[in-house]
Design a protein around this nucleic acid. Sequence first.
DNA 1: AATTATTTTTAGATTTGTCTAAATTAAGAA
DNA 2: TTCTTAATTTAGACAAATCTAAAAATAATT
Lengths: 217, 217
Amino acid sequence: MQSYTEENYLKIIYHLSEISHPVQTNAIAERIQTKAASVTDMIKKLSEKELVHYVKYQGVTLTEKGKVTAINIVRKHRLWEVFLVDKLNFKWDEVHEVAEELEHIQSNLLIERLDEFLDFPKVDPHGDPIPDKHGNFAEMALVKLSKLKNGDKGTITGVSEHSSPFLKHLEKLGLTLGKRIAVVDVVEFDGSVELLLEQEKLNISREVAKHILITKN
Amino acid sequence: MQSYTEENYLKIIYHLSEISHPVQTNAIAERIQTKAASVTDMIKKLSEKELVHYVKYQGVTLTEKGKVTAINIVRKHRLWEVFLVDKLNFKWDEVHEVAEELEHIQSNLLIERLDEFLDFPKVDPHGDPIPDKHGNFAEMALVKLSKLKNGDKGTITGVSEHSSPFLKHLEKLGLTLGKRIAVVDVVEFDGSVELLLEQEKLNISREVAKHILITKN
DNA sequence: AATTATTTTTAGATTTGTCTAAATTAAGAA
DNA sequence: TTCTTAATTTAGACAAATCTAAAAATAATT
């Protein structure tokens, strides 16, 4: 069994692993709001427990055991987010902090029952995939909106940026999960994208388009 | 804001306050699965934060501030229990441990929405009352134990006879304030009542039952 | 009232997770 | 390659919550 803090480290390392391999000490320190020295200490501890593979001055990667633990936390986090939005009417930019706490509740029965209660959701309110109890993600071909060409159509299935300002911006534009969009034009000058959303024309910056994930169909 | 541990101490002190005033160090130690020395340390800390009133060698009582905090934790604990039983089909004996964890989640919005989602329940699955967001418990009518029927459950909340012989008798039987009882059988012949008190069977005369006041729940 | 037993507190140590400041290693620039 | 800068680690300290063992206070008993 891991402590609350250990779980947080594993989760952060898991997320950072998708960006860099191995994961650097400073990157962890920044994300976890702590100092590099503290990270080194914790990494040593996780390494002794064989949850991470650690090479001095290089960084860490999760071991199989560590990965299983991390994915389970991610699963719990995302299921709780679905609960908060679907059942308690939270807005999608209000759920993160609470889910950060709820993800550490220790009870397999609880999480399996919650999964069932929510009708086995495959994605969380941000469109991020929810692993099943064996740690498997449902495969999904997600494409960045910025990669689409003129005339392409699809459904908004996720975002790759979870900050409140960004989500509020999307909310305001009406670019929410499940909405269908069509690309009218990609402006060559600045990469901004002209969209059709529910018969309305709409222009979004390339920066925004890069963080919207689309299922082409 | 209080730590997880501080919250647990406040909650335990709150519960023990219903039985003895002030609350003894050893009583806390037993309930919280720790040593008396640790309790003394924590009590000093809570006292400095003005959450409890502490007199050396005597014991502690909650201050108003401490009581508000404690009642809020009790509220959260009991709401989560309702959620687990009503929505996730937990059995009433499976909920306690999980609720012990959930009660420490910090979010007023969460708990108000949960309350609403559960349709503002007044009692938890064990029949214990749930305080509202202002800390008020729904008033419950006191009933003479002699009026209860088979299967009825409740908490001893008072007596209508204050003579020493009577109170000594109750003391001896273990029928003290705050104890939960269940009626197994009301004997038709003489009106005596067969009770279940802390897993033990017990028979009391109709005369005694008439002077014990119960909060049904 | 004196003695014994129980309860509570103190003193000092331990564990977990953190910190600062200094030392070390790796990476980049001249 | 050598010097400089940036990243990382070590060493030593600290706060929170706990513990053991010993001392002090209270309660119970003779």
